[in-house]
Simulated assay, not measured.
Amino acid sequence: MVLFKFKPTTSGIRNKVKIFNNLYKFKFFKKNSKILRFSAGRNNKGVISVRHIGGRLKRKYRYIDFFRNKDNILGVVERVEYDPNRNSNILLVLYSDGERRYIISPKNLFISNTIISAPQTPLKIGNTLCLKYIPLGIKIHCVESKPGKGGVYSRAAGSYCVIISNFYDKVIIMLKSGLLKKISFMCRATIGEVGNSEHFLIKLGKAGCKRHLGVRPTVRGVAMNPVDHPHGGGEGKSSGGRDPVSPWGKLSKPLKKNV
């Protein structure tokens, strides 16, 4: 991983920061993908139901194996790829039976490394096993909420969970946010933390990059007319003259108590 700061030859790349990873630069594995429809924030009637969404570049969804249900079949990491639908990278794994699947890329798992899934496996980065056989304090990711449901917790870049205690048939895991979850000890998890933890260091540099991701501009309410927003109108620059509200009049912040 290398952080690259561009020379300020234009104002658009003056503050741009990009991460260069050793990712696969050719076509992805098309058999495990589909065309992802984009609604641009509109419902089935064509009416905008979610604001500030639209104008995104075309992208395809890669099917990710969150279940890891190929038990006792050895898999070899073929390549590391970029996924436009998530901030973590993905791995293309070739199993010994000839099948290929995408998985979330753990940290420090490289090309030609081997992984395996089973109810009980060695504690090695990339291996998937039941929480019953994972000791306390080990970093895990892609944790199931119910047995057989597939990984739900800790799938974003740089995230992980830790088992802090266990009971008869339950374990308590702590997410990176500090939230505690009590789940069955037969739920599966993958050893290690999710890679690409430097994703938060990226700076897009210009508004056009955000538009390519499907984010449209957000206009302040005080810059609108009274017909468009409760904060609109007024002579000159005004602060709204009332408590902050949404465009539909609902309070967006708690009221300040007069002391």
Rank of each mutant, 00 (worst) to 15 (best):
I163G: 04
G205E: 08
G234T: 01
I164V: 13
L180P: 03
K149A: 13
E193M: 12
T218P: 01
G234A: 05
I191L: 13
V162C: 14
G178A: 08
P217E: 07
R216N: 12
F185S: 12
E198G: 03
S177T: 14
A157S: 14
M174Y: 01
K139I: 00
H229V: 00
V215Q: 13
H231N: 14
V162Q: 14
K203I: 07
G240P: 06
M224Y: 02
F167V: 04
F185K: 15
V152M: 11
K210R: 14
I172K: 06
K237M: 05
D228Y: 05
L175D: 14
K206W: 02
C209R: 08
N166F: 02
K181S: 04
M186K: 12
K149R: 11
K170T: 07
S197Y: 06
C209H: 09
Y168P: 01
T218Y: 12
S145H: 05
R216K: 15
K210D: 08
L201P: 11
M174Q: 15
F185Q: 14
K181I: 03
S239N: 13
G178R: 05
L175F: 03
R220M: 09
P217Y: 02
S238E: 07
M174L: 10
G195N: 08
E198P: 00
G158F: 04
I202F: 04
G234V: 01
G221Q: 05
G148C: 12
D169N: 14
P217W: 01
H212T: 09
I173C: 03
A207S: 14
V227I: 09
S197V: 00
G232I: 05
V162P: 04
M186H: 11
L204M: 12
C161P: 03
K170Q: 14
K203W: 04
I140T: 08
R216F: 01
I172S: 06
T218A: 13
E235N: 09
P217F: 00
K203C: 12
V215L: 14
G158P: 12
L213P: 07
C161D: 13
A156K: 15
I183Q: 03
I191V: 12
T190F: 00
S238N: 09
G158I: 05
E144S: 07
N166H: 08
Y160I: 01
S154H: 06
F200W: 10
R188Y: 09
R155S: 09
S238M: 05
T190W: 00
R188G: 01
H212S: 12
I164L: 06
T190Q: 06
I163A: 11
G208A: 10
S197D: 14
D228E: 15
P230S: 03
G233N: 06
E193K: 13
K146D: 10
H231E: 10
G232S: 09
S239Q: 07
G233V: 02
S184T: 01
G158N: 11
E198Y: 04
G233E: 06
D228I: 00
Y160W: 13
I191D: 04
N225T: 08
G148R: 13
S145P: 00
I191G: 02
G205F: 03
M186F: 04
R216Q: 15
A157E: 10
G178H: 05
V171P: 04
G151S: 05
E144D: 10
